[in-house]
Simulated assay, not measured.
Amino acid sequence: MIASITRYASTRDLLSAAHVHALTRAGRHRPHAIAAWRPGVDLPAPGSADMDRLVDELNEPLIQFAADTGSRPGRSRQVWQCALRTHPDSAPLSDQAWANAARRVLAAAGIAPPGDEAACRWIALRIDDHEARIVAPLMRQDGRTPRTHQDISRVTAVCQLIELETTGSRRHTAALTRNIPTVISAQGPATAPADHFAPGRLAAPSR
Rank of each mutant, 00 (worst) to 15 (best):
A107M: 10
A119F: 07
A112W: 02
R85H: 09
P113S: 08
E117Y: 12
D116R: 05
L125H: 04
C120F: 09
G110N: 01
R77I: 12
L106D: 01
R121A: 03
D129G: 08
L106M: 11
P114T: 09
A119C: 15
I111R: 00
A91H: 13
W122F: 14
Q96T: 10
R77F: 08
Q81N: 13
S90D: 15
A112H: 05
R104S: 15
V79R: 01
A97L: 06
S76H: 13
A119V: 08
L93F: 03
R104L: 15
A91Q: 15
C120V: 07
L93D: 00
A102L: 08
A102M: 08
A108P: 00
Q78I: 11
R104G: 15
R126F: 08
A124M: 07
D89C: 12
A108D: 00
P88S: 09
A97C: 07
Q96E: 14
A108C: 05
G115S: 13
C120E: 09
E117Q: 14
S76Y: 04
C120D: 07
R75T: 07
P114H: 11
S90T: 15
R121H: 05
D128Q: 08
A99I: 02
N100Y: 11
Q96L: 13
A83I: 12
P114N: 09
R121Q: 04
A101N: 10
A91D: 14
V105D: 00
L125F: 09
I127K: 03
E117T: 14
D129V: 04
P113I: 04
R104C: 14
Q78H: 12
P92D: 03
D116E: 12
D129Q: 13
Q78D: 15
A109W: 06
G74P: 00
A91R: 14
A118D: 13
D89T: 10
P88Q: 10
R75A: 04
I123R: 00
L84D: 05
A99L: 02
L125S: 03
S94K: 09
